[in-house]
Amino acid sequence: MSESSLRLVWVYPDLLSTYGDQGNALVVERRAQQRRVPVTRVDVRSDQPVPTSGDIYLIGGGEDRPQRLAAERLRRDGGLNRAVANGAIVFSVCAGYQILGHEFVNDLGRPEPGLGLLDVVSVRGEGERCVGDVLADIDPHLNLPPLTGFENHQGVTHVGPQARPLARLRMGKGNGTGDGTEGAFNDTVFGTYMHGPVMARNPQIADLLIKLALDVNALPPVDDQWFEALRAERIAAAVQPA
C-alpha cells in the first residue's frame, strides 16, 4: 500500500460500466472512508494509460463489442499486467472477468486473447442466457459469508489449476460449466459473474480487498444494517424464486 492513501483504479468506465458495476467502486470507496482510510479514486478511460501504482483495480461488465475493444486496449497498454506484477489487487466482473483470463470468445465469434492474469478460459455458452439471482458458498480459505448476486451472461468459464473457483453454487449458473462453480481467484486477482452490483450484495468482499491492499487482518466494524437486510432478502429470493 502507498504511504498516504488507498489508490483505487476503476478501469475503462467508458467501455465496461453497463451493468451498474461502478457500484463496486462506490462501495469500496465508502467502506474505506468509514474506516478513516483516505481513498484516491482514479477512473481511467480507454484512451488513457492504466496507472501501475494503484492498490486496488476494479473492472466491470459490458457488452460484447466494448469487451473486445477493452481487451485490445488493455493488452496494448500493459499497465494492468505491470500493476499485478507489482502486487496490486484486481477484482473483475463478467466481461471484465473473461478479459483477465487467457482467452474468451469475442463479438465476432472468434477467440480473443485476454491478459492471462487469472488461469481461466471462457467460451460462449450454447443454451439460454443465465439471468437471475444466485446464491453460493465462497471458498472457505477466504472466510466470507455466502455470496449473493445477480447474473446475466452467456459465458462459460473453465477454471484452470493455477486458480480456484471463488464459490460453490447453491442456486444459479455461475461459471456455466455445470460443475457447480462460480468465479475464480488466485492470491491477488478475483473474477465473478455476479452483478447486483456484487459489493452491494456482499460488502465483506469489499472489506477483503481493502484488507489485502492494506495488509491487515481486520478492519473496525461499520453499521451494516441495510446491507444485511438486503442480503437476507436476496438470499431468500434466490432459494425461493418468485
Binding site: S17, D21, Q22, G23
Partner: peptide, 9 residues
C-alpha cells in the same frame, strides 16, 4: 426488468 443494478448508475 428484474435486475436492479442500474440504481448504481
Amino acid at each position: 426488468g428484474t435486475d436492479t443494478s442500474w440504481l448504481w448508475d
